[in-house]
């Protein structure tokens, strides 16, 4: 195998990593921090992808002059729509099911089925794709023989920016402080004066919004269909559990490792064999480190 091929395979792994990482960061917040198993997280990602698609359609019809901005606007639209949907979901459903994980799982699974049907009705059963903005077409050649598609370079940068943003939000902002206090000791956070119900709603909404951003990024490397969310939800859960459910760094590292493994194993094996091999490795790893690669003990 040539060095070029290996490098480009590593780069493919990197783009898979970006999708997994974006999706898993949202999931790490919803599942890791709040303990909510949201089976509709994949559909929220698909919703973000459809919103990006919708934005590009609107731009191409009414604002063709500034088509280049369509994708950037699409990311913001995807975040806001999915976050708003998350807020609604938390208020009408999730908050009534806290401490009932099985009910939450079933209810959100129902939501995911409903959303898939809605996508099918509204956008049709056929996959849609978002045209790559002209400034993201072409490739970057850091060395001869190695061409890195600009669109993928861009989503890697986007992932790093989102990770940095989430870090600043959680560890440097007032909301982050509220969220971390509630996660460490809910009753005490309330007795210290923090409105824990509102913190839950905001936390959940932010996690859902990040799924939307993951969907935006996904449109750069794949088309979007009603079942798109299903393809990634299991991987995203594996990433979060493997990384250690309470650790964002763990989530990031684990997304990186799983993205790379998937891409490297796909060379000798088929895609589904690669998945099975990863699952096996993850199970072995979790046997030795049951709470994930990076785990901290958090009192609840």
């Amino acid at each position: 195998m040539s060095v070029d091929m290996l490098l480009s395979q590593i780069f493919n792994g990197l783009s898979l990593f970006t999708i997994l990482a974006l999706m898993a960061i949202g999931l790490a917040i919803v599942f890791g921090l709040m303990g909510v198993i949201n089976m509709a997280h994949g559909e929220l990602m698909a919703m973000g992808a459809y919103m990006t698609y919708l934005t590009s359609v609107i731009f191409s019809r009414w604002l063709p002059g500034v088509m280049g901005a369509s994708f950037l606007v699409g990311i913001v639209v995807a975040f806001l729509t999915t976050a708003a949907f998350g807020l609604l979901l938390e208020t009408v459903m999730i908050r009534h099911l806290y401490k009932r994980p099985l009910d939450t799982l079933l209810a959100t699974w129902g939501v995911s089925l409903i959303l898939q049907q809605v996508f099918r009705q509204v956008f049709g059963p056929i996959n849609v794709s978002v045209p790559t903005a002209s400034w993201l077409q072409g490739a970057w050649s850091p060395m001869p023989g190695l061409d890195l598609p600009l669109a993928r370079v861009f989503i890697i940068a986007l992932t790093l920016a989102v990770a940095l943003g989430v870090y600043l939000f959680l560890f440097k902002s007032r909301w982050g402080l509220r969220i971390r206090s509630v996660m460490q000791n809910r009753a005490m956070a309330g007795a210290a004066g923090i409105n824990t119900a509102r913190v839950d709603a905001v936390t959940f909404a932010v996690g859902c919004g990040l799924a939307g951003v993951a969907g935006s990024a996904l449109t750069m490397i794949a088309s979007t269909g009603p079942a798109t969310g299903q393809q990634y939800i299991v991987d995203a859960f594996i990433v979060v559990v493997f990384g250690g459910v309470e650790s964002l760094i763990g989530t990031f590292v684990s997304a990186f490792m799983i993205g790379q493994m998937q891409s490297l194993f796909e060379m000798p094996f088929s895609g589904s064999m690669a998945k099975a091999a990863i699952l096996l490795l993850v199970i072995v790893a979790l046997y030795f480190r049951p709470s994930g690669l990076f785990s901290i003990k958090v009192r609840r």
Partner: peptide, 29 residues
């Protein structure tokens, strides 16, 4: 708390993974 009660629990219940400053700030909502 907003209405004017302040509470210091038995066993302190400090947020263990927040810094001392963050613990104080958590009471200032």
């Amino acid at each position: 708390v907003a209405a004017g009660l302040g509470y210091v629990p038995q066993g302190r219940m400090i947020f263990p993974y927040l810094t001392v400053l963050e613990n104080i700030l958590s009471g200032m909502d």
